[in-house]
Nucleic acid binder design. Structure first.
Length: 185
DNA sequence: CGTGTTTGACCAGCGC
DNA sequence: GCGCTGGTCAAACACG
């Protein structure tokens, strides 16, 4: 495992979970503020570079601690590491975080098109696959419920947006503001 | 009719 | 080589 960061408990400095280099930093909003605005809790997020490709959801069940509340806490690696297929370039950015939400679909300001849904091993919950619908933007995200705690939703972003969030342009809001979206599914 | 979702089929990587 | 698994495709479908 190489570099990754867990910053959930650090509400003071907060990185943009939406890997978009076009976006400015929005340091003025805290998770508390978000939690008030939104009906979910951004409980954990993990950014990892190209070398750290192990998926959260592939954590070995047998190795799982009963203390789920520790979240990932730097121990995301699975005991059965599975080499993932090349993401195209090693520069491909991946980013996962976990939110406490009743809704699986977060409106993060970008427009997503669902292109797949799959039951995955070791999880009773299906995984949903989304692509950014913006032309020329190949960012993908995966959304699934935490098998340990169905109250949590695990979202994994893959790639960088090459455009601005339509929502941030129109409403000048945080481009990565995650909002439960009742309009989707 | 246009847009987005659903879902079964298909493909590639990996372990045995 | 074969089976398992995760990821993607695309036709069919639903909905406004």
């Amino acid at each position: 495992m190489s570099t990754f960061s867990t910053a959930m408990n650090a509400t003071s400095h907060y990185q943009n979970p939406n890997p978009n280099p076009n976006q400015a930093a929005y340091s003025s909003t805290t998770t508390d503020q978000l939690n008030e605005l939104l009906d979910f809790e951004l409980s954990d997020y993990v950014a990892f570079d190209g070398e750290f490709e192990e998926e959260i959801s592939t954590r070995d069940t047998a190795k799982r601690s009963e203390n789920v509340e520790n979240n990932f806490n730097g121990s995301l690696s699975s005991s059965t590491p599975r080499k993932e297929k090349n993401l195209g370039t090693k520069d491909e950015f991946r980013f996962a975080f976990r939110t406490k939400s009743k809704l699986e679909i977060m409106d993060d300001g970008f427009k997503w098109r669902k292109y797949g849904k799959k039951m995955v091993k070791n999880s009773p919950n299906p995984r949903n696959y989304f692509k950014c619908t913006s032309e020329g933007c190949s960012v993908k995200k995966r959304v699934e419920r935490d098998r340990d705690d169905p109250n949590y939703v695990i979202t994994t972003y893959e790639g960088m947006h090459n455009h601005q969030s339509p929502d941030s342009i129109i409403h000048n809001q945080m481009p990565w503001t995650l909002q439960p979206s009742s309009s989707l599914q």
